[in-house]
Write a protein that binds this DNA or RNA. Sequence first.
RNA 1: GUGCCCGUAGCUCAGCUGGAUAGAGCGUUUGACUACGGAUCAAAAGGCCGCAGGUUCGAAUCCUGCCGGGCACGCCA
Length: 565
Amino acid sequence: MEMKVFQERAVRLLAGLVPIEPEQIRAALETPPSLEMGNFAFPCFLLAKELKWAPAKIATDLAEKVGKDPFFERVDVRGPYLNFFAHRGKLAEHTVGEILSQGGDYGRSDQGGGQTVVLDYSAPNIAKPFGVGHLRSTIIGNSLYRIHAALGYQCVGINYIGDWGTQFGKLIAAFRRWGDEEKLASDPIQHLYELYVGFHQEAETDPELEEEGRAWFKKLEEGDPAARELWRRFREISLAEFRRVYALLGMEFDYWHGESFYNDLLEAAIAAVEQAGLLERSQGALVVSLEDEGMPPCLLRKQDGATLYHTRDLAAAIYRHETWHFAKALYVVGVDQTLHFRQLFAVLKKMGLDWVEKCQHVPFGMIRYGGGKMSTRQGRLVFLADVLEEATHRARQIIAAKNPDLENREETARQVGVGALIFGDLSNDRIKDIDFDWDQVMDFSGETAPYIQYAHARICSILRKAPAEGEADLALLQDEYEYPLVAALSRFPEAIERAGDTCKPSFVARYLIEVAKEFSRFYHQCPVLAAEPGARAARLALVAAVRQVLANGLYLLGIEAPQEM
RNA sequence: GUGCCCGUAGCUCAGCUGGAUAGAGCGUUUGACUACGGAUCAAAAGGCCGCAGGUUCGAAUCCUGCCGGGCACGCCA
């Protein structure tokens, strides 16, 4: 919170001079478009009405009254703004000193106070291949997990695997018709994929097939041994593949509670809805009417008695609350399911469960491909495993060309390739749709993870050549390349806080680009190892601090920071 | 049809919850050190912020209406 120290100082200085509360002053402080206009500014428009003075005049007046303060080099007036310039030497000492002493903890806070956040993310569907669509939920959720943990929350990460539902009835029906044991053994994922696509193709001309699928799911729910056995096998096969993909991504979960995990809780959940007097029979199905909320009803039991997605989500929400008493429950799920969650939360609210206020859908845009939505059924999708392999391959090629003697080449290629992929997703607002584009995924220059990783690796290279120095005078870090870098480093905690408050990792991603960019400018202009002794020691400390922030930040995104690449 | 989301440089996107001259990257053009990694750096060109109203001292940002695109809308998840 380095910059905050200076902001608090400014709030205190202003508090006695203006007719508004310190809280309002704090909220009014803003960051100018350029560092040349100060580290932060107080706009005087707010006071114009009350004081009946022109904003610019108020600013001039305040500047005089504030006078000199050891925390600030100066306080300038620029039009209606009062611009605060932190004392450069002090800021450098505080910021760099704190980063180096806190290390991996720099940026952390105790905002969460140990409260629990439950995150539901990834949730690949076992009946389908792991496509790049699920990648979004996985990497956004993973990053939000780490960001909340850094903010002092106790996090619970749940992979709500799609391992139950009518789709399994369909898969079973398809396997019984066209299944091939040999193929299932040799290339299981491909075979399941073919069965899934084949089923939906056939179903278009053969309506009985849908009926057959539903019937098999009903049997599955009733515990039919044959159905259960096939389901178990399909599930095992898919989970093995998922585990392989997660290992490549470097991601883990606290719980693998798939939809089937909540099977035993479904009846109790439906009973609770009934007890609340909400359950109605409609066209043979059991529903909760949400007409008063302007939404279609929430279906909890089909005509044939089988349960639905909503039923399982309802049971899961109740279970999670009873188990963890969360302060927040985040559902990192695509924007196409917005209505689903609005309905789910509305039902929970009608049941009088006021903790529903702590539940939040964290939506993200769709990935489209070839001019349309990615669709498993139509066979228009990109396999995640292929994308991971291609990105790694690209990194491998670049390494071969630029750094052929590198040890750990394969591991580094994976870190860089996967990092590029993750960053490409996290660097933009999650709500935006993404057009999947191979060229874009394979671009490792400009605002990308490799750009940040490269800055990190260069610093590591410098530090390897310079054994630990003694005390450095950090206050020396004031020139036109050093200082903007220091100022950028001081804003790391704010970036994390904003990312957490909005559930948008993109704020951390954007921030890291800024730091890496400032570093690259500095690196190009300022010698470190060849600098004269005083500057050398200070710059070594500075780049070590930059390295730390880049590493901490990349970690929050789920991206690794190799020492060489 | 109804509801929600998106629309900013040729392309992909930022824009700090209403503030200062609208910023990056890619692509294009031109340049860069016998220092520490050229996956880099510097510079140029490129804009009725979809359109029209409104609120405000002040709007890319908030409100309304259009236009364009996306998503969703009872027995899938």
